[in-house]
Nucleic acid binder design. Structure first.
Lengths: 206, 206
DNA sequence: TTATATACAAACATGAATGAATGTAAACAA
DNA sequence: TTGTTTACATTCATTCATGTTTGTATATAA
């Protein structure tokens, strides 16, 4: 077949990733063959094997394309001390921003669905679990710092330790995200996710 | 092959379920063939197809064998008003009892691992998500009732509504269970799960 | 005692899915 | 202009999983 320009090649690579994400979220990772992905992207399997070592590598790239930017954006809302002075509001905004991205960005939504309900963490994918645990630790630590701010500013009950509060918030939000993803109909969690976040933060206020 | 007695047949059926659970939790549902399950159970695929319609049916039976008894046991700790008077302690005991079962009972532990990280909710398994959502609603409602008790007994902040508290606790625990399962090493969440539960309940106390 | 249903094992047929090898036309560098 | 690399398409070989069918020895009912 005709060789493409570098820009064209990058476009097909991107189309393959998008096709994979779409089919993974529809039919699950293991039931999505490279043949189906290729057809959906308008190429053949040869193209996929050119751009990616195998299905697992494609999966990892797909995941990173959503999560690496997400990690970079965390500090923007969580540690944005100039734009938002109140620490509790900053935590609330961080959680709400994540929900908002899920609602607005299809790629993010599909990737969360895949990671939470459409893939099996075995063999080469088992390492992803460890990465998730690491990310969670990082996020929890950052939330803890913000709770320490709130503690210093006497915004919360002084008996509650920032460590406990941070872990509790993180676990709450992890649970919420899982239910958000599972609630495909949208009438149980997706439609009231923001209210649940605000209620959670309200439980902390004095 | 020689026909077995009814008791023998029931034993092989049970061995098939156990083999499936073990292999599902090790290698994931989709990568576990009926051939492997059969070998691990000491039978041939013929035996599996005799006792179960297909792999999906076997999966459902495996799941129900752990979750139907669990649902039955909920009221024992959560609504045991005679043995434990304090509503907050009853909620705490319920959460701790679940963690305890995960630690002690291998079948329960493996089933949770399968449902959370080793299967893909597509096609026939997609219905399981709906069942999970329904179970969660039931549990949340029961927790809410206990929080209402706590409210009436002035054990918690009167500004906090039992509905919000129940949902918050449920999401917290869902998140904790997910992290518990993912923390295979055991040094991040599994070893401090009880402490996290107690800290969560403590956040409610006056 | 015999007929039948049971509880499987064994064999068969079919359909993917993967990975590797090979082919090829056009982009790009020299 | 030409040689080389790129960006795929095509074909091939192999493995593996499922579902079905058939065979069969025995528990059990009549």
């Amino acid at each position: 077949m005709a060789r493409k320009t570098k820009e064209d090649a990058e476009m097909t690579r991107q189309r393959i990733i998008e096709a994979a994400r779409e089919l993974f979220s529809q039919n699950g990772v293991s039931k999505t063959s490279l043949e189906k992905i290729a057809k959906h992207a308008g190429v053949t399997r040869g193209a996929i094997y050119w751009h990616f070592e195998n299905k697992t590598a494609l999966f990892h790239v797909m995941r990173e394309q959503v999560f690496l930017p997400f990690i970079d954006r965390i500090d923007d809302t969580l540690l944005a001390t100039e734009s938002e002075k109140n620490p509790l509001t900053r935590i609330e905004n961080f959680l709400l921003a994540t929900i908002h991205t899920l609602n607005e960005d299809q790629a993010t939504r599909q990737t969360y669905e895949i990671l939470m309900t459409k893939c099996e963490y075995v063999d080469e994918l088992a390492t992803v679990l460890q990465q998730i645990l690491n990310n969670c630790s990082d996020i929890t630590e950052k939330i803890e710092q913000v709770y320490q701010d709130a503690h210093r500013q006497h915004l919360i009950n002084p008996n509650h330790s920032p460590v406990d509060l941070a872990m509790d918030t993180h676990l709450f939000f992890g649970g919420l995200l899982h239910m958000w993803v599972k609630d495909v109909e949208g009438n149980r969690f997706r439609n009231q996710a923001e209210a649940l976040v605000k209620a959670h933060i309200n439980l902390r206020k004095k």
